[in-house]
Design a protein around this nucleic acid. Sequence first.
DNA 1: CAAAGCAACATCCTATAGGAAATAGGTTCC
DNA 2: GGAACCTATTTCCTATAGGATGTTGCTTTG
Lengths: 239, 239
Amino acid sequence: MAQQEPREGRLRPARRLTLTEDVYESIKTLVMDHILPPGERVNIDALARELDVSPTPVREALARLEADGLVRKRPLSGYTTTPLLSRAEFDDLFDVRQLLEGATAGRAATHASAEARQRISAEAAASIDVEAGDGYRRHAAFTALDAKFHDLIAEVSGSPLLRDTITRLHSHLHLHRLYFPVAGAPDTNTEHQRIAAAIVAGDAAAATEAMRAHLSAARERHLPAFDQLPSPGTPRDSA
Amino acid sequence: MAQQEPREGRLRPARRLTLTEDVYESIKTLVMDHILPPGERVNIDALARELDVSPTPVREALARLEADGLVRKRPLSGYTTTPLLSRAEFDDLFDVRQLLEGATAGRAATHASAEARQRISAEAAASIDVEAGDGYRRHAAFTALDAKFHDLIAEVSGSPLLRDTITRLHSHLHLHRLYFPVAGAPDTNTEHQRIAAAIVAGDAAAATEAMRAHLSAARERHLPAFDQLPSPGTPRDSA
DNA sequence: CAAAGCAACATCCTATAGGAAATAGGTTCC
DNA sequence: GGAACCTATTTCCTATAGGATGTTGCTTTG
């Protein structure tokens, strides 16, 4: 077969050694940017053609994405992208985040090394100047920075399992899908700095409280998304 | 090709509609029962021959298992089963369990319906009479019952996401792999009943405390596993 | 005797082909 | 006019083949 040809691959960033890995990231991006709309059916062959690979790695990537909860698979009907968060799922997500991330903040205040505290402090300060670019780019950059800050705290908490558990929630991906226009960036930065200060000071109780308050405020900020969209969380028939 | 032949499949319980699903469960069982030893390389082709299917569904099932954390994939070297829990990972697991399952117990005490409280109470009582069979069978049955009890509380907690998060820890699978001989079954049942009583009484604080105490005690019961095995958690070189 | 280089092997990774089931549309009957 | 049935198409699911790469063992040289 002619598989040794260079082939003008469409989107393939750097060929990380395995095609499946690249395909996995590509599909994740497609889901995030609504190029694959929520609740829509995913055609494996079409996706393979689009990415210019064979269906096999696509299938493998989708299996991983299913375990991540980003797509669902109905036995003989194919894959569909996960619908947007319903209001109940949204509240559930933030309840769990408060539990998990409140714990990471508290642990970070206790366990973090001096160098780690430095990094957190720097990260909280750096996220102020995200003001360039249009609406979407700005939102994407802000979301990425927010995710980085939260992951940094989880990393420093000293519990790899807790960090993995939080990562698997894919909070920022779901929020990004749910709500495009960003609001309250200054508030977010202020809250981040308050969390960082508590961690640097080594006050576990204060760090936990600051994180929980931050998530509570973030939850309120995202709430309008449910009013402006036609019906963000109407569950498709999943018989 | 001759793929429409009935084919005397070796282990294929009921053909749940998709081969991949069955293969997934089969491999999970193989990992649990040490037929695939911890830290060992997994040969895709050999596994496919063993299960009498083509490599494709095996590959797809392994991708899901990797997302679950039961196997690891090194880019061009193949899959390996996850090593047994190290002492640090073991402690980490129970820390996270205390956090998560303490919360489910508390929520269950508050949110559960009357019917749900009934089920929990019955389940805690039923798990007493697990005494038949040889060592391994007895252990497997006990592990399954314990998992069922914990999942029941998670289900009743009213947070689907929290339940999924706990399920993804695969606590019982890891413990099962780590430690074959079971000990302290009566203690476990007593502790379960204490948790159930607190939930039935609707005392959230007591339920949380009972769950955390139970997990703390269970952690102590499992601890000898690290003394008797040669080197349960020695991390293989993972360069 | 040890270390580096080379060659053979095994294994993974990707691509393609074909059968089976579900879905959608049109037609016919009541 | 509506509903049920049938047919055609699309899509998924499984199987097989071949190229590329990593690994291992052996040989050779310093």
